[in-house]
């Protein structure tokens, strides 16, 4: 028994049609959840009454439950919910919309934590300096704080994106025709599952490495201000760079340390 390479080539050809679907899910989820993530992070940082509790609850719930449970809940609850609102048309909705919903809801929670820790890494003095040259707090936030926070968040946004790409491989459960779904159907004819999944694996590796390279370039481009003068800027990115998600940051400690320092 060995691998059926002809079949693998065939799967590779058909499954590639699923790549745009996967990318679409990832991009839609990312683009919607990025601004909402910033907003939620601000709600947490500025401790906005009422809302803070809701955001905290939401993040904890989403991060504490498996994506598969979230998929099953959304996929079972939303159609009947929509049915009540728009009638029978609800059942003919393209399932990819359910994928958008699940993965957006999921990414919002991840990105809220990412931005919360990123915003807290920006030194309090940056805001104070902004105020002391006469800016309004809002102006200082948009022009000074947020750009720095976004850049320092880039590695963790990359992690969140990778996480999202990988999770999107579960969209087939909602009968979305993504890479995994197509390969699975192909494999079912002759029970060539191993071959099919090896091909899918390669596709995911390519997509993930592609995303990682893009984020590396973004980081390189945007963090020009962090480079010290002595270092030369050779092109030495490395696709095997490993940065494990560092989403748990003990921010409370950092916060109190900072306020202590401020007292003279």
């Amino acid at each position: 028994m060995s691998l059926n390479t002809d079949f693998m080539v065939k799967v590779a050809q058909t499954a590639i049609q699923g790549v745009p679907v996967t990318l679409q899910i990832v991009l839609v989820a990312l683009l919607i959840s990025l601004p909402i993530g910033v907003l939620f992070a601000l709600i947490r940082i500025y401790r906005i009454k009422g809302l803070e509790l809701i955001v905290k609850f939401y993040v904890s719930l989403v991060r504490g439950t498996p994506i598969i449970a979230q998929i099953l809940i959304v996929y079972s609850a939303f159609p009947s919910l929509l049915n009540m609102m728009i009638g029978k048309a609800a059942f003919s909705i393209n399932p990819i919309y359910y994928a958008y919903i699940v993965f957006t809801l999921n990414s919002i929670a991840t990105l809220t934590e990412v931005f919360r820790s990123a915003l807290q890494t920006v030194d309090k003095g940056q805001m104070e300096a902004g105020l002391m040259v006469g800016m309004q707090p809002r102006q200082a936030f948009w022009r000074i704080i947020l750009p720095q926070a976004l850049i320092s968040a880039l590695p963790n946004i990359a992690n969140a994106t990778l996480y999202l790409i990988k999770n999107s491989s579960l969209a087939f459960i909602m009968s979305v025709k993504d890479i995994t779904a197509i390969a699975k159907t192909e494999a079912a004819f002759n029970y060539n599952f191993l071959e099919a999944y090896l091909v899918v694996w390669v596709y995911y590796l390519i997509i993930c490495y592609g995303a990682e390279i893009i984020f590396n370039l973004l980081e390189r481009y945007f963090s020009k201000y962090r480079r010290s003068a002595k270092r030369t800027t050779g092109f030495n990115w490395n696709p095997f760079s490993i940065k494990q998600p560092k989403l748990v940051v003990k921010t409370d400690l950092a916060e109190s340390e900072r306020t202590n320092n401020a007292h003279n």
């Binding site: 491989s169 995994t180 694996w201 995911y204 993930c208 490993i242």
Partner: peptide
Amino acid sequence: VYVSVIRATPSII
């Protein structure tokens, strides 16, 4: 390489 490949592999796969 091992760690990097695992990092880019969906759990279901």
